[in-house]
Design a protein around this nucleic acid. Structure first.
Lengths: 156, 156
DNA sequence: TACGGTGAGTTTGAATTTCCTACTCACCGG
DNA sequence: CCGGTGAGTAGGAAATTCAAACTCACCGTA
């Protein structure tokens, strides 16, 4: 999934090169839920075992997961999210919200995340500076590196 | 990329089944930037033309993109994001922010998005109800459908 | 001590996708 | 007429994925 051909330096592409392969983000979902054992992951994600092993290695190497023994004799391991891995959780929340809104009719949500404020979590992406919700019309792309051309009027 | 084996109903998995294939989110990046023409996409993304054609068909079918003629005689088309497609832009912003933070050293960001408030956009995922930034410790998973087991103490 | 079971993978060969290059088709401009 | 552009399609080689079986280490129990 490395992108040797992508002519543009881009943090979206770089991030996807790490977590954009099939199953990778579902692995993150599971470890964030606390289901970090190999066979749990196989069952819950439905991925072939060999592919899962490959993904796990990659995520550990990238520093998104840590492989921790949870019992010596017999050695057993559990995958847990690192700080960096946890920082991708908002992406998962946002994807889930999008799917709930666009892929499901009405209130048949398979999972609700409860926030500490007591409400069901409805994630909103906001601007740290002003606090407003991020909307397409409010964004303007400012390329900082060569390789970018932005044709649209408002861009982002 | 359909997930016939995934034993869990999950909006994250469903959303990724739609936009999780290689290049799909980069296509969305480009169309959000206004670069919606086929050859632009090929150049900017670095995808093989046939794969790109497949992805575009899929995204149009899913209602994330619209294929609009921008000139008759010779017929030429441009892909533009629909409302639903634009609603995935926050996901892109969040992925970009993560990549900027974890995959790059210091200030070599390839792209800065300027928000209408005048500041460089730093996207933060917040809870719509209370406005607080979403943090892992504040989340609890409440499965609504069968097929879910959540082992972790705090989950999400 | 043998027997079946679990966790965590690895191996193997077939099925699927991707990749790359070339090709098409419609048109335009000189 | 000639070369060039936009938007794809075609063909075969290369890389990935898949499913099922296999390994290895260990545990509980009978």
């Amino acid at each position: 999934m490395a992108a040797p051909k992508d002519p543009r330096p881009c943090s979206i592409a770089d991030t996807l090169a790490l977590v954009g392969e099939k199953y990778s983000l579902l692995v993150l979902r599971e470890v964030c839920l606390g289901n970090g054992r190999f066979d749990q992951l196989v069952r819950n994600i439905g991925a072939p075992r060999d592919i899962l092993a490959t993904r796990l290695r990659r995520l550990v190497d990238a520093g998104l997961l840590a492989r921790q023994p949870y019992c010596e004799r017999p050695q057993r391991f559990e995958y847990r999210p690192t700080r960096a891995g946890l920082e991708l959780e908002p992406v998962l929340m946002t994807l889930m919200a999008w799917g709930d809104r666009h892929l499901r009719t009405d209130g048949d949500r398979p999972m609700i995340i409860e926030h500490s404020c007591g409400q069901a979590l409805a994630p909103v992406v906001t601007c740290r500076a002003c606090g407003d919700e991020v909307r397409h019309e409010d964004l303007t792309a400012r390329p900082q590196a060569p390789g970018w051309t932005v044709t649209g009027p408002t861009a982002a």
